[in-house]
Simulated assay, not measured.
Amino acid sequence: MKIDELETELRNPRTTDLDNLSVLEMVEHIDAENQEVVNAVRSQDKIIAQVVEEISKKFNDGGRVIYCGAGTSGRLGILDAVELVPTYGLKQGQVIGLIAGGPQAIYQAVEGAEDSIELAKQDLENINLNSDDSLIAIAASGRTPYAIGALDYANNIGALSVALVCVSHSEMGEHAKYTIAPVVGPEVVTGSTRMKAGSAQKMILNTISTSVMVKNGKVYKNLMINVLPTNKKLVERAVRIIMETTACGEWDAREKLKEAKQNVPVAIVMQKKALRYEDAQKLLMKNNNRVIEALK
Rank of each mutant, 00 (worst) to 15 (best):
G71D: 07
G74H: 05
L76Y: 01
L76I: 14
G77Y: 02
G77D: 13
I78S: 06
L79A: 13
D80C: 11
V82R: 10
L84Y: 01
L84A: 13
V85A: 08
P86D: 10
T87S: 15
Y88G: 03
Y88M: 09
Q92G: 06
G93I: 11
I96C: 03
L98K: 14
I99F: 04
G101C: 12
P103C: 12
A105F: 08
V110Y: 02
E111F: 06
G112E: 12
E114R: 06
S116V: 12
S116E: 13
I117K: 12
E118S: 15
L119M: 14
K121F: 01
Q122I: 13
D123S: 09
E125I: 15
N126P: 04
N128T: 11
S134K: 02
S134H: 07
I136L: 11
A139C: 07
G142T: 07
G142N: 07
R143N: 11
A147D: 03
G149M: 04
G149V: 03
G149T: 09
L151V: 09
D152N: 15
D152R: 15
N155H: 05
N156K: 14
N156F: 06
G158I: 14
G158S: 13
G158T: 14
L160P: 11
V162L: 07
V162S: 05
A163M: 05
L164P: 01
C166Y: 01
V167R: 01
M172S: 04
E174L: 11
H175G: 08
A176H: 03
K177A: 05
Y178E: 10
A181G: 07
V183H: 06
V184G: 02
G185F: 02
V188M: 04
T190I: 08
T190K: 12
